[in-house]
Amino acid sequence: MSSRLKGRTALVTGATSNIGRAIAEAFAAEGAHVVVSGRSAARGEEVVDGIRARGGRADFVQATLDGSAAASQDLAREAARVLGGRIDVLVNNAGIFPSNTTETADEKTFDQVYAVNVKAPFFLTAAVAPAMAEAGGGAIINLGSWIARLGIPISALYSSTKGAMETLTRAWSAEFGPRGVRVNAISPGVVVTPAPGQVHPGEVMMKGTPAGRVGTPDAIANAAVYLAGDESAFVHGIVLDVDGGRTTVAVIAG
């Protein structure tokens, strides 16, 4: 076990699977005491048990982040209590991804996606960041997406929420950075949990990129460890692309 985050506490939302789980596991492996948060107690306890089995510190706090200020505030309060009174690192990862088009997205879905993907992290940050500042500082990491900046003909609703989170990253950096709270974002590319012998439909989206393949959750977790730790002490308000080059590079065969 390494110690880049030794002595720090962290709250990771949506940490019961995929990217959120990988981030929670990576933080714990680096010495942080992590609150794993999500809707499923069974999956949450599985993550916590795995972390503890490897010698890490973790606890599960169940939360349904529906966009209400109360739900976000309750999570902030309970996570701080479990972590001994403070949250040093917040990862706003929880989100929902409906695969629809502008024509097929109804108003109920629109409201739900914005509630979970934007309102919930907005009010969670509002509850956590001032306490971080009062305690002497901290780090907030938001999850954006490559499709917030590279348009594709589906999921306009989802991509717009991730664009909002990337904008909030810069606004919060200006608001809380001078008070000691660094705010940055990670923009993942096509990321999947590998399944032996299976080809993921997202593979086609990574054709023509330098990586030439989909990414795995640990790639995003490694970036999160960097943004949470001392190595990024001079990094404020960025969106770190961890996308295999998808949004910036086109590989053209000769």
Rank of each mutant, 00 (worst) to 15 (best):
K162G: 05
R149Y: 05
E103M: 10
A133G: 14
L90K: 00
S145G: 09
A94V: 01
L75S: 10
R149A: 10
G144W: 02
N117I: 05
L157I: 05
N117F: 04
A131S: 12
I147R: 02
I154W: 11
V89K: 02
A129M: 12
L157R: 04
I141F: 09
T102Y: 03
A148M: 06
Y158E: 07
T125V: 06
G163A: 14
D111M: 13
G163C: 09
I147T: 10
A129I: 04
M132L: 11
V89E: 05
S160M: 13
G144K: 03
N100W: 02
I152W: 11
V113F: 08
N93V: 01
V118K: 08
L75C: 10
E107N: 10
I141P: 06
D111I: 12
A129Y: 08
A127Q: 13
G163D: 11
A79I: 02
A133W: 11
F122P: 02
T104M: 03
D111V: 14
G85T: 00
S160Q: 08
K119E: 08
A115V: 09
L90A: 11
R77G: 00
L75F: 08
A115T: 12
A156H: 09
T161K: 08
I96V: 15
A139M: 00
R86V: 02
I154T: 14
G85K: 03
L75H: 07
E134I: 06
P121N: 13
A131P: 05
N92C: 14
T109P: 03
A148T: 05
L90D: 01
Y158S: 03
L75Q: 03
N92H: 07
P121G: 14
